[in-house]
């Protein structure tokens, strides 16, 4: 199960990174979102993968899921949403003001980075 979980995290991270390396804003935003899923899963798994653990404190129960990574990831999810929102709106603003949705500075060298 650990290997499977790690594989999923790896694939999500790879897909996210590939998108983050694209030259247009929208795929980059989608890529960042995908990357944040991978990161959240990774962070969450640092507490171990607990099956059927108790979510709340109960008398006589000793099998709990690690709460600390959960608390961290919970805020990370919300902040991740704020980041996605901010970057996508920034992308819209750039398109509105400059008429382009390319991620590279248009004043910069046109050549290699752009075409390739």
């Amino acid at each position: 199960m650990e290997a499977l979980f790690a594989t999923v995290t790896g694939f999500l991270a790879a897909s996210g990174l590939y998108l983050a390396l694209r030259g247009r804003t929208f795929p980059v935003v989608v890529g960042l979102t995908l990357l944040s899923y991978a990161v959240n899963l990774f962070l969450f798994s640092t507490g171990g993968l607990t099956t059927n653990g108790a979510a709340v404190m109960q008398d006589g129960v000793t099998h709990y899921a690690d709460p600390l990574p959960q608390a961290l990831v919970l805020t990370a999810i919300v902040i991740g949403f704020a980041m996605t929102a901010f970057s996508v709106i920034l992308a819209m603003r750039v398109r509105g003001d400059q008429g382009s949705d390319q991620v590279n500075d248009q004043r910069a060298e046109e050549s290699k980075e752009e075409k390739s």
Binding site: E2, A6, T9, G10, A13, L17, F42, L49
Partner: peptide
């Protein structure tokens, strides 16, 4: 990148 993330995750788990 994905390979390294997966390896790291597996090693950790």
């Amino acid at each position: 990148f994905g390979g390294i993330v997966a390896s790291l995750n597996y090693a950790l788990l």
